[in-house]
Nucleic acid binder design. Sequence first.
DNA 1: GGTTGAAATTGACGTTACGTCAAGGTCTAC
DNA 2: GTAGACCTTGACGTAACGTCAATTTCAACC
Lengths: 248, 248
Amino acid sequence: MGWSIAEVARTSGVTSRTLRHYDAIGLLPPAWVADNGWRYYEHEQLLRLQQILLLRELGLGLDAVAAILEQQSRHTTVEVLRQHRDWLVAEQERLARLVHTVDRTITDIEKGGEMAPDTMFQGFEHNPYEAEARERWGDDAVDASHERIKALSADDAEKARTGYGRVHDGLAPLLAEGVPASDERVQELVDLHFQVISLFWTPNAEAYRGLGQMYVDDERFRQNIGQGNDALVTYLRDAMAIYADGKL
Amino acid sequence: MGWSIAEVARTSGVTSRTLRHYDAIGLLPPAWVADNGWRYYEHEQLLRLQQILLLRELGLGLDAVAAILEQQSRHTTVEVLRQHRDWLVAEQERLARLVHTVDRTITDIEKGGEMAPDTMFQGFEHNPYEAEARERWGDDAVDASHERIKALSADDAEKARTGYGRVHDGLAPLLAEGVPASDERVQELVDLHFQVISLFWTPNAEAYRGLGQMYVDDERFRQNIGQGNDALVTYLRDAMAIYADGKL
DNA sequence: GGTTGAAATTGACGTTACGTCAAGGTCTAC
DNA sequence: GTAGACCTTGACGTAACGTCAATTTCAACC
């Protein structure tokens, strides 16, 4: 009488390991255990297993499943399901925010891919670091960079239009509010900017300050970063200078 | 020279345990280790830590973070981030489906709360089970059930309008396609129906068959379940009868 | 009665990113 | 010398099993 663990496993689509696990945590003990230790299941256990699987499919944890089956009350069940639903929605929103942030970071990096290396080499071009740059990345890379920076057209600017989004998004309202560049919130954003830059190139204080100045001086950077709002770029430069003085 | 583990922990907002963990998995070894075994970190490690935290905030696993920092290439980084983004979106969609399913199940159960007990008792009312029902749930429950079933108004029907959604959603198109009630897809839906019912009441074959018949005979059930589509209710009854014969 | 193959059992480790003790050494200051 | 802060390694716990590994049992066949 009754079914063995493998038979139950086959007909219900779970592994015998899972059934043993459910036994171990007390969620689904077998109907009876033979003298040799073998587990045997009856119709009642099969039904309970189906209930477990139904609830598990909703994404509930086994503890929540156990709570529902223990109470067998509509009120408790709906209560647990509602909590679970709330959790699902919250998690979904968290993921949505992450997707957004990742998207922003990707465009930031891609924009960095179009501009930052050139920035980097241009920064070296007329200062004592150029020799080091040529040594570190090779003449070809530096020369190619010079080519690319010359070739930067309105097209590229357009392509990069959405870049530096995370920093831009946060900075613009702070500027509008008249928050000083030394403000903590501004410096946090600059820190983010510095970190994204630092994923591939770590400027020292002087280079970072120079990068900010270049954003202002070079029309393409000014346009890309400020999106027509030149004050924003100046603001970023000032904030970067303060950051460089304080943290680098 | 350098900072101790607790100093780094304080300034960067992680615990010393985390730093030890990052050392253990090779993600962030300290700059040097003193003779007494104490870890000391330099500026370079702080920077790397910031990079790690930046990427971790995007929801990346530590292995993905390690991959990015190991390569230090824009291409790899964007590649990893894109994969991660895809995963995030897929997960988000999965959660959205779960939310939907949980919602449906909640309304199913709540509708069950309004109708199934009455169904249950009504099912017993004119058959040999009524005595057992009175013994099992008490006279009060059965009498109250009779009161409630009499009081079922258009209001209640309206309240329950969205119930049995999962079954209804799946069944209607199959009926429209002319799929026979014995079809596997139909029977799967009936199985779902049976399982939701079984969360609180486990009918035997006869009771389940009777429940299906009642859906057809009683106007309120017919209306609630079929939403005006009487053929759907008949279809469900037939499918339930087949299910009862085959599985119960 | 012995052998074989299928099926069963109980461990126990691995997974993710640490949190949380626990036991014991080290440093600094009084 | 000792208190107190700080450091170390070690080990268990988390969720829900997957995946061996070693061993035992059962049913059937020769």
